[in-house]
Nucleic acid binder design. Structure first.
Length: 618
DNA sequence: GCAAGGTC
């Protein structure tokens, strides 16, 4: 039997071939420069295998000619007019390769990632191959990691394609296109009629079910900052200076008031006077216990973008681009993964060994190899069943600039994962004075993973000995005043976190959505020191606040609608809803909102005009 | 000139 295997991307095709053939395969080029065909025998099922791949989705969706140009129709009809599905121009050579290979095959085995999108890509592959060979048997290989035993098992026990999952994705594709195109054209054409600046630039004023909630987060934080009024508070500050030993200089131990701070001056003053009336502080409790600072979890794409943008000051999109490049050069594992747990069979030692030669972290890697050095990584809660957490696959010493910094971060993170938690000793001293309680708590370090993961800080300070029942005269006892501080604008790391929590976009697209609202000039990047903050432009504020004033039951700029789309997709996958019902219900809902938005768009225009100009403020 | 999701 001749079997044609098709993976979602070239790297997986190569890995599968290496495993199934035991390294004995021949390589043929295809019409596409990224894609190769691998041939070998697979005696376990008495078959001749060819393994190739696509490169993500094969098809593109668009309206027919009659509706593609912007002035050809009322945007409202885009909710209903037919959508054409074509092989995208970039995929033409890939389609050709699939057809050639399918003609000579008895069976098509689909090896796309085991997620909804993978099932949809699989159905695209099946359509192309069945066109080339009508009676080809279509099967699907199920695997959750590129591990020999799993890959062999998948090849020997193929299952059926899950059409329900493919349908759910198809519905989302159609919905996003209809909603995006209809609202984008309506917004753009209406605003261009009112604001000359927009007309000159001809930039679309886009709407999208992911980009608007993303913009909504930025505007919402902006409003919090603008409406913030500082509040004065008061607190009692207590400290003691004493030497830890007879020879050392005195050190100050600061105690924290158990009440934190109060907003009522008179009450605070009364309590303070009570404390002043009692010159002696008594140690009521000393608790000492070991404490830990946990090493980081294995690295996912979202976490790379969050911690990377915070620690390396690189934009999430940039981080992903750099990681992608390093992956293509063979230094990193696949950088788009939701998985924060390594497979129990994962071979860490050979990867750690590769890092021993590094001048900066080689010694740490060497120590991990010794007895008591290595501790298996923590197990997170997420597993996409397709890719392991991001880790270095080879050592490289001559990178420069951002590539070097990203590689270093990922490598240090990985080595930290294979190390031990930092250990400390916590001493909590509780003190009573004039009826008020105060406490001090400090930690002493045993660094472990912190030695390689230089991005985490864990400060500790030796605290003098205190004994229960001991009395002392505080060195300082003061009534102090403070002020609540304004929230800051959103950082990119904050925004990634919010999007991830609210299910806006996926690990691979979150960074793109942020880029989109910047490109559309809805949001400006403002540097303060080394930190980049996101501030909405007048246009961004006008759009969000304008829609808010229309008072939709479900806001176009909040995550709820996207969550509902997600829930509908799950229902289609489970078979509790049909694709047609999902489409019909959503389209109806958005049509109602579209009609109201169009009717009351003067509110968006009014809010935008209120800022005087609709172009961006600098 | 529109979306979001894959991927190179």
């Amino acid at each position: 039997m001749k079997v044609l295997c098709v993976a979602e991307k070239p790297s997986i095709a190569r890995s599968i071939s290496a495993i199934l053939s035991g390294g004995q395969f021949t390589t043929r080029p295809s019409a596409n420069k990224y894609i190769k065909n691998f041939d070998f025998n697979y005696p376990q099922t008495n078959s001749i295998y060819t393994v190739t791949s696509v490169s993500g989705h094969l098809t593109a969706h668009d309206f027919g000619d009659a509706y593609r140009t912007w002035n050809s129709c009322d945007p409202f009809v885009l909710f209903d007019v037919p959508i054409e599905t074509k092989i995208s121009t970039e995929s033409k050579t890939i389609e050709k390769n699939l057809r050639n290979e399918a003609r000579g095959a008895d069976m098509l085995m689909i090896w796309t990632d085991c997620d909804r999108e993978g099932e949809h890509i699989g159905s695209e592959i099946a359509t192309v191959c069945q066109k080339a060979k009508h009676n080809i048997i279509v099967k699907r290989a199920r695997f959750s990691a590129i591990i020999a035993q799993q890959i062999h098992n998948a090849a020997q026990h193929p299952v059926e394609l899950d059409r329900a999952q493919a349908n759910a994705v198809e519905a989302r594709i159609l919905l996003d296109l209809r909603i995006g195109a209809a609202f984008t054209r309506m917004q753009t054409l209406t605003l261009q009629g009112r604001f000359a600046q927009l007309n000159e630039k001809r930039d679309p004023v886009s709407y999208g079910p992911c980009q608007f909630p993303t913009l909504g987060f930025v505007v919402s934080r902006y409003n919090q900052v603008k409406s913030f009024v500082p509040e004065t508070f008061w607190y009692i500050f207590l400290s003691l200076s004493r030497s830890t030993s007879s020879s050392s200089a005195p050190e100050e131990t600061q105690f924290t008031w158990r009440r934190g701070h109060l907003f009522d001056f008179d009450v605070t003053l009364a309590l303070y006077q009570h404390v002043l009336g009692d010159p002696l502080a008594r140690v009521v409790k000393v608790v000492q216990k070991p404490t830990k600072k946990w090493k980081p979890l294995p690295l996912t794409t979202v976490e790379l973008q969050k911690s990377g943008s915070r620690l390396l000051k690189l934009a999430p999109k940039k981080l992903l681009d750099v990681a992608e490049k390093l992956y293509q050069k063979g230094f990193l594992s696949y950088p788009r993964t939701e998985t924060d747990q390594f497979d129990p069979q994962f071979d860490h030692m050979s990867l750690i060994r590769k890092q021993k030669i590094d001048p900066n972290w080689g010694a740490f890697a060497t120590a991990l190899e010794q007895a008591n050095g290595f501790v298996g990584p923590r197990t997170g809660k997420n597993n996409d069943k397709a890719h392991p957490p991001i880790h270095p696959t080879a050592h490289i010493g001559n990178l420069e600039g951002d590539e070097r910094r990203v590689y270093e971060f990922i490598t240090r993170r990985y080595l930290a994962c294979c190390s031990k938690d930092a250990e400390g000793w916590e001493k909590n001293v509780e003190v009573e004075c004039g009826g008020e309680r105060f406490s001090a708590s400090l930690t002493i370090l045993a660094r472990n993973y912190l030695d390689v993961y230089i991005y985490d800080k864990w400060y500790g300070k030796v605290i003098p000995d205190f004994e229960e029942g001991e009395e002392f005269t505080p060195t300082v006892c003061e009534l102090k005043e403070g002020e609540t501080s304004s929230p800051s604008y959103l950082t990119e790391a904050d925004l990634v976190t919010l999007m991830d929590k609210n299910g806006i976009g996926t690990d691979a697209t979150i960074a793109q959505h942020i880029q989109t609202i910047v490109d559309r000039e809805y949001v400006l990047e403002r540097m303060e020191g080394a930190t980049k903050y996101l501030v909405p432009s007048t246009l961004g504020i006008g759009l969000i606040e304008g829609y808010n004033q229309i008072g939709f039951e479900k806001s176009l700029s909040k995550p709820q609608l996207r969550r509902e789309t997600e829930r509908s997709m799950v229902q289609v996958c489970e078979g509790t809803k049909t694709k047609q019902d999902m489409l019909a219900q959503s389209i109806e809902q958005y049509k109602d909102m579209y009609i109201r938005a169009r009717g009351e768009f003067n509110k968006v225009i009014t809010v935008s005009s209120a800022f005087g100009r609709i172009d961006v403020m600098r």
